[in-house]
Design a protein around this nucleic acid. Structure first.
Lengths: 126, 126
DNA sequence: CTTGACGTTTACGTTAACGTAAACTATGTG
DNA sequence: CACATAGTTTACGTTAACGTAAACGTCAAG
């Protein structure tokens, strides 16, 4: 486990472009330090990048992923923390819906596959 | 269960705009008939719309949802059906990845929630 | 008959998430 | 020193998925 990564290191490891990393930084999702003008990414940045990409695979926007990352460190007064809990609940509801959708879509795909294989068998006989 | 729906019927039922339905039609995802110039949506259209929206909730593009809808009716020669099976497999792999991501994100959210509640308790005591 | 509710087409506008290109800097190598 | 390699900033381009507005058709109700 390294302590810091160049922009190309990180980009190659996660198969994204340097441009994307700069873009995420511009949006406040990554905070590399500057080492002689060049960007230097910490392990925390690397972790955040993983979370961003996981979010993307689930169809979240960068802003949504940003929100989720901010949920990791509950900060502020009671009201703010309570508001954070509410946002977490909402997200959980959304993810549970996604689980249902995922399951039903997988079932549909399996049925489609069955029909395909049946079609191939019919094709064999005829 | 009705036999046909006006554009507003369908839009209201699924909480989308008429504009969106016309857009989906333009992209070939819906095929309403014309009844006196106005669009008339069949139950098949209604079902396809459901699939489109499910896809959206999972972060799929319209084109991906379109592909999945086309998988329902295996047509063509052996080669085409085999290619369809391959595409189905790929989708399944992607969805299984999404399931993993979903589970880990849900776990993360639960942990975040715990930390929030702990922070509230600390706040109570201090 | 005209007003209103609903429909149509056409076309330009908008946002997210980068891609791409230009122009420049710094560094190590033959 | 020249050149390649990797970095930087700035800025305009691109695609998906509609939103929004204009301009028009149509039909039942007052």
């Amino acid at each position: 486990m390294q302590a810091s990564y160049s922009i190309r290191d990180l980009a190659q490891e996660f198969d994204v472009t340097p441009r994307a990393l700069r873009f995420y930084e511009e949006k406040g999702l990554l905070q590399p330090t500057r080492h002689k003008q060049s960007r230097s990414y910490s392990n925390a940045d690397r972790t955040r990048l993983k979370l961003i990409l996981r979010g993307k695979r689930l169809g979240l926007t960068l802003e949504e992923s940003s929100d989720i990352i901010l949920m990791y460190n509950p900060a502020g007064n009671r009201r703010q923390i309570q508001s954070l809990i509410d946002k977490i609940q909402e997200k959980k509801v959304q993810l549970l819906q996604q689980q249902e959708d995922l399951d039903s879509m997988l079932q549909d795909l399996n049925k489609s596959e069955q029909r395909c294989r049946a079609a191939l068998r019919d094709n064999d006989k005829g």
